[in-house]
C-alpha cells in the first residue's frame, strides 16, 4: 500500500518536471528577445530539475542515491541564478537593450 502511494507521488513529480522542461524549452523558442528568453530558460529549468530530481528520489528510497540527487539539486539551485546574473550583466553592459512595453514608466521606483 505504502509502496504504491510512493510510486504514484514519484510519477506525479516526474511528469510535472517533464512538463516544465518542455515548456521551458518551448519558451526559449517562442519568446521574442534575449531578456525574455532568460526567464524561460534558466528559470523554468530550475523548477523542472527540482521536480524531476525529487521524483527520482521517491524511487530511490532513502539511501545514498537520494543524498546525491538532493546534492545535485542544491548545486543547480546555487549555480543557476549565478550563471543567469552573469549572463544578464554581460549582455546589459554590452549594450543589448531589452524590448520594453512602455519606456516612460520604467525604470519605476517603488
Amino acid at each position: 500500500m505504502m509502496d504504491w502511494a510512493v510510486d504514484i507521488v514519484g510519477w506525479a513529480f516526474i511528469l510535472i518536471g517533464c512538463f516544465f522542461a518542455i515548456v521551458g524549452a518551448l519558451g526559449l523558442l517562442r519568446l521574442p528577445d534575449v531578456y525574455t528568453r532568460v526567464h524561460s530558460a534558466g528559470v523554468v529549468d530550475t523548477v523542472a530539475a527540482a521536480f524531476m530530481l525529487i521524483g527520482f528520489s521517491f524511487y530511490a528510497g532513502f539511501s545514498l542515491v537520494t543524498v546525491k540527487l538532493l546534492l545535485i539539486l542544491a548545486f543547480i539551485f546555487f549555480t543557476s541564478p549565478t550563471a543567469t546574473n552573469a549572463l544578464a550583466n554581460a549582455m546589459y553592459s554590452q549594450g543589448i537593450k531589452p524590448a520594453l512595453v512602455d519606456e516612460e514608466e520604467s525604470p519605476s521606483k517603488p
Binding site: 516544465f20 515548456v23 518551448l26 519558451g27 517562442r30 519568446l31 521574442p32 528577445d33 531578456y35 525574455t36 526567464h39 524561460s40 528559470v43 523554468v44 523548477v47 531589452p98 524590448a99 520594453l100 512595453v101 512602455d102 514608466e105 520604467s106 525604470p107 519605476s108 521606483k109 517603488p110
Partner: peptide
C-alpha cells in the same frame, strides 16, 4: 513558475517586459 508557464503556453504570448529598480 505556474504564471510564467501560462504566459508561454497562451497563443497570444501576453508578455509586457519591463525594467525596474528596487532598493
Amino acid at each position: 513558475a505556474v504564471d510564467v508557464t501560462k504566459v508561454i503556453l497562451s497563443p497570444r504570448l501576453p508578455i509586457s517586459p519591463r525594467m525596474l529598480q528596487v532598493t
